[in-house]
């Protein structure tokens, strides 16, 4: 669905690259996450993929289209939700969607269906200018589904939203993916990446450091740990064991056999801890 080779981008064409030598592929049906701190070059990459930024160097193929010679018909197949919401303040939520739907050459969703999906149906006739930031974001998000895209770009889809709304959005993304939609998602939120993505790319300072599935990464980099609380002669003791280390495993097995276990929690290494380990940078 997406194929990128040797992508470079310099905003001022001065050799100061926002994206450096990025290469990756996203197969059909995958949720691919671009994970990195802000300023890493995630939005820039997405901008090039969606034709918002001109391709300077490298090969980019999106949904079967060569981005170098952009064809407008490509946009019938893709959807794009922006990091910064951008809707017409002077139009109502419904008018915003209705206007946008007329720009496509393919069948589009009913605006009201989309508004219901993101919980804005009650305010469909309210001007978007009077919306809160979160509501505007949801409208922008809803708009990106207008043409039932095969390939869906989401830039920081849950950033700055309250948890309940973020959960709704995650649910919609999961549902769309189940229907076969390929999703390219950028975020600096490792929970989102972990929960939604089949594979993630770690990106720092415009460079992709690695690409793998969250599960593989945890197997490879994460040392899985177990916290155990057990009764020992009247008092409660606490110990942490590795599930990888041979001696720890043996000790844990003995403990389970001889002592009374009060609580036992596995503690996975988080994607964030792995990110720090791999890139030496925090995800902020």
């Amino acid at each position: 669905m997406i194929k990128v080779e040797g992508l470079y981008h310099s905003y001022n064409r001065d050799g100061d690259y926002a994206v450096k030598n990025a290469s990756f592929e996203v197969p059909k049906g995958e949720v691919f996450g671009f994970l990195g701190p802000s300023g890493a070059g995630k939005s820039t990459t997405q901008g090039i993929l969606t034709g918002l930024l001109r391709l300077q160097e490298g090969k980019v193929n999106v949904a079967g289209y060569d981005v170098k010679e952009l064809k407008r018909s490509m946009f019938n197949k893709i959807g794009m939700s922006f990091e910064q919401s951008n809707v017409y303040s002077a139009l109502t939520a419904r008018e915003n969607l209705r206007f946008y739907s007329k720009l496509f050459d393919v069948p589009t969703e009913d605006p009201d269906t989309l508004l219901k999906l993101v919980g804005l149906f009650d305010v469909a006739d309210k001007k978007a200018g009077e919306f809160s930031k979160g509501m505007k974001h949801r409208l922008t998000f809803a708009r990106s589904m207008m043409n039932n895209p095969e390939l869906w770009f989401l830039d920081e889809p849950t950033t700055g939203l309250d948890p309940a709304i973020a959960a709704t959005i995650k649910e919609i993304v999961r549902e769309k993916n189940k229907q076969g939609v390929t999703i390219f998602l950028t975020t600096h939120n490792m929970y989102i990446a972990d929960e939604l993505c089949n594979r993630v790319a770690f990106i720092v300072d415009g460079e992709i450091k690695l690409i793998d599935s969250p599960r593989n990464l945890k197997l490879q980099y994460g040392q899985n740990l177990v916290d155990v609380e057990y009764g020992d002669g009247g008092s409660l003791k606490k110990e942490t064991f590795s599930t990888v280390d041979e001696r720890d495993i043996k000790k844990l097995q003995e403990l389970i056999g001889r002592k009374h276990i009060a609580t036992m929690h596995t503690k996975e290494a988080t994607l964030e801890e792995i990110f720090i380990k791999v890139t030496g940078r925090e995800l902020v």
């Binding site: 969606t50 918002l52 893709i78 794009m80 946008y100 496509f104 708009r143």
Partner: peptide, 9 residues
């Protein structure tokens, strides 16, 4: 909003 127009056909 022009960026939204730019990703429409």
């Amino acid at each position: 909003t022009v960026s939204a127009i730019n990703v429409a056909p």
